[in-house]
Design a protein around this nucleic acid. Structure first.
Lengths: 331, 331
DNA sequence: AGATATTGCCAAAACGTTTTACATTCCGGA
DNA sequence: TCCGGAATGTAAAACGTTTTGGCAATATCT
């Protein structure tokens, strides 16, 4: 390239990057020759010098514990990943989806990313340890409940979802509201349960909480339905179930026992999915806005990477809507 | 690192990579010190030397033309991307989803990938040009119809889908079968239409073919329904519609005009999606097996990358199933 | 005219590996 | 005692950039 343009390697670099001092004419010529030759600087060599590859890593923790990366009907994460990849591209970065990079055979490329997005970190997440140890910037979606001083996370709105959902159910006439969470040790489960218990305490209701393994899917929901039916206590008149697949299973299980939805029991899912949209009746759900969240997370991370040390941006807020469906529409 | 272990940089490299000649004891010690320090070779520097980053690129062409990367209800591509990412990880690679790298502001990292997967290349696809010019190995899903000598592609089974679908419809009693394709200039559309026309010629049926822009989604399907209804020719008694969203729109459009599905017209979609699963009646569809296809594509590409020049592997075959639903189940 | 800036370019160092080719030590055999 | 070869380790080159410092040549000032 340098030979073709009749200048030094240095001048080529300066011309193409707009750095240094190069005569306009020379710069122009170099740019033309580069275009003609289809030349562009090798990203790896450039990365070696600058320690910036132009690559973001994405780790979706629930998929690590779920084992499968294609759980049927759970489209939240794939939509999240797709949207994140696109937003990254728009910011001039590539995005690599990875599994837990602390687990054994992570590809060497893992730690070469400029920054990371961790979706739903576990409590005291070792991935966050690894990254901070290597001084790699990261942004989390959902907080690490054991790391209160780590503030670069977004998605705090999920906390307020509990209140919105309870308000929604009250409005529709619910009196005794139960909560069903997953068992992953993340803030989505933990904070939701805490908020719920707070509300119960404030309203003199004895809390009704079930925790069910996310991996069990609809079948796990049916189990919860059985437990509710077998319980001595009367059935709640509304159930807030964080995961969509559990919600669909609970609804099916209750219906199988002759229980009418929404007239006997109303159901809300904390995460919209194909199952909640297409159950009969369709299940009212919180739309966690995977695309918007992903975009916000990427934009925030990029801002973090490109900001000066001294004026770090604050995490963006995200608003979630309730998709009002027949499972909470009485009469 | 070298200092900590009291050996030269060379010996560290040799020890960790199992190359060169190092005394067993020395190698052991180096490995221990590395583990203790949490040291592992910098992927970028290594990449610079070896020209291998451990990164695969994925370009999904239909999403480039679709404009959006999250078309509602089109889950094929996100499932494909997710599965590809996971399989890549299992093979020790990271996977980067990219847009058309020939279009302007591609991230520099684009050409640093070790190999590429191109899903549904266009005719004479410039992305394939770019990659071959840069000697980057690639694998396509679907062939480039203008590049008959390019053989590293899989998914030829889509050709046979036309036959299977027609056989299925015949079996259910269809006599006049219409075809609706998209307008993207790829082999999925082109080869399907060719196969259909061949079949029509062989069976003395005058072909009924509509082409509709993929981007129009269900609305585009309704338009086709209107055109069918407005046509002088009698309605076909079965429609094979390649995209799921068009199929759902056609079904809705015909139903709105009082046409009964499947009794008056049967419908088959060439690609399963949320719309085909959840229309009333549910639409019989070809399951394009995005996960299996993605896995096969990645495995094939990795085999290509790691094979010696002289024994290149052959592309794998993929089988597709027809999901038999009510839209083709008469009386 | 001589001193001092300014402009335009380049050589060389640095980034952290892998690879090649060579240096040292040690041993056994002549 | 000397030599050849095996065993072990290392120095140096190479990968393709960016960055730093400097050197001419030209322009500007006194």
């Amino acid at each position: 390239m340098a030979r073709h343009a009749g200048v030094s390697i240095t001048t080529v670099s300066h011309s193409l990057n707009g750095k240094g001092v190069v005569a306009k004419a020379t710069r122009q010529r170099v740019i033309e020759v580069a275009a003609e030759l289809g030349y562009s600087a090798d990203a790896i060599a450039r990365g070696l010098r600058s320690n910036r590859l132009g690559l973001l890593g994405l780790v979706i923790r629930p998929l690590d514990t779920l084992g499968s990366y294609q759980p049927e009907g759970v489209d939240y994460f794939l939509r999240f990943a797709g949207a994140a990849a696109v937003e990254a591209l728009d910011c001039g970065y590539g995005l690599v989806l990875m599994r837990d990079p602390t687990a054994g055979n992570a590809p060497g490329i893992a730690l070469a990313a400029d920054g990371f997005i961790i979706s739903d970190p576990l409590a005291g997440d070792p991935v966050i340890d690894l990254l901070t140890r290597n001084a790699i910037p990261l942004v989390a979606v959902g907080r690490d409940v054991e790391r209160p001083d780590f503030t670069a996370w977004l998605g705090g709105g999920t906390l307020r979802n509990v209140d919105s959902v309870i308000a929604h159910l009250h409005e529709r006439g619910a009196k005794r509201i139960a909560l069903v969470t997953g068992t992953d040790d993340n803030s989505w489960n933990a904070d939701s349960e805490n908020s719920y218990r707070e509300w119960a305490a404030e309203n003199d209701q004895s809390p009704i909480v079930y925790n069910q393994d996310e991996r069990l899917g609809e079948e796990g929901g049916r189990e919860i339905a059985d437990q509710l039916l077998a319980s001595d206590a009367p059935l709640p008149d509304a159930i807030y179930c964080l995961t969509g697949r559990h919600a669909a299973g609970i609804q099916a299980g209750l219906q199988a026992a002759g229980c009418r939805i929404p007239d006997d029991v109303m159901i809300v899912a904390g995460s919209d999915s194909e199952q909640t949209r297409n159950s009969t009746p369709p299940i009212t759900s919180v739309d966690l806005a995977p695309e918007a969240t992903a975009k916000a997370a990427v934009a925030y991370l990029v801002a973090l990477l490109e900001a000066a040390e001294d004026d770090q941006p604050a995490p963006p807020e995200i608003e979630y809507d309730i998709r009002d469906r027949a499972s909470t529409r009485r009469g």
